Lab assay of single mutants.
Amino acid sequence: GTEDLKEEAKKALKKGDKERAKRALKKAGLSEDQIKKFIKEVL
């Protein structure tokens, strides 16, 4: 589900894998702006 994808994105970001995080967030249905915001909040 969406929460799982967001968790996956957080883990990817902590490993420095932004591309993987972006893919997971796109799958979760987030827009580009939401993805940028999510990444900023996590990092």
Rank of each mutant, 00 (worst) to 15 (best):
G1Q: 12
G1L: 14
G1K: 13
G1F: 14
G1H: 12
G1E: 13
T2W: 14
T2H: 12
E3W: 03
E3Q: 11
E3V: 11
E3C: 09
D4A: 14
D4P: 07
L5Y: 11
L5C: 06
L5G: 05
E7L: 11
E7M: 10
E7T: 08
E7K: 09
E7N: 10
E8L: 12
E8A: 09
A9L: 05
K10R: 15
K11A: 13
K11N: 12
A12L: 12
A12Y: 12
A12E: 05
A12H: 11
A12F: 11
L13V: 05
K14T: 08
K14V: 10
K15D: 15
K15A: 15
G16W: 03
G16L: 04
D17N: 07
D17M: 06
D17Q: 08
K18Q: 13
E19W: 05
R20F: 11
R20Y: 10
A21R: 00
A21P: 00
K22W: 12
K22Q: 11
K22S: 08
K22T: 12
R23N: 10
R23S: 12
A24R: 02
L25P: 00
L25C: 01
K26Y: 06
K26P: 00
K27V: 07
K27M: 12
K27N: 09
A28E: 03
A28N: 02
A28L: 13
A28T: 03
A28P: 00
A28G: 03
A28D: 03
G29P: 00
L30N: 00
S31F: 02
S31H: 04
E32G: 06
E32T: 07
E32M: 07
D33V: 08
D33Y: 05
D33R: 09
Q34W: 04
Q34H: 04
Q34I: 03
Q34T: 03
I35D: 02
I35L: 05
I35P: 00
K36C: 12
K36Y: 09
K36H: 12
K37Y: 06
F38W: 08
F38M: 06
F38E: 04
F38Q: 03
I39C: 05
I39F: 12
I39L: 09
K40A: 15
E41W: 08
E41D: 13
V42Y: 15
V42K: 03
V42L: 10
V42S: 07
V42I: 12
L43W: 09
L43Q: 07
L43Y: 09
L43N: 05
L43D: 05
L43I: 09
L43F: 09
L43M: 12
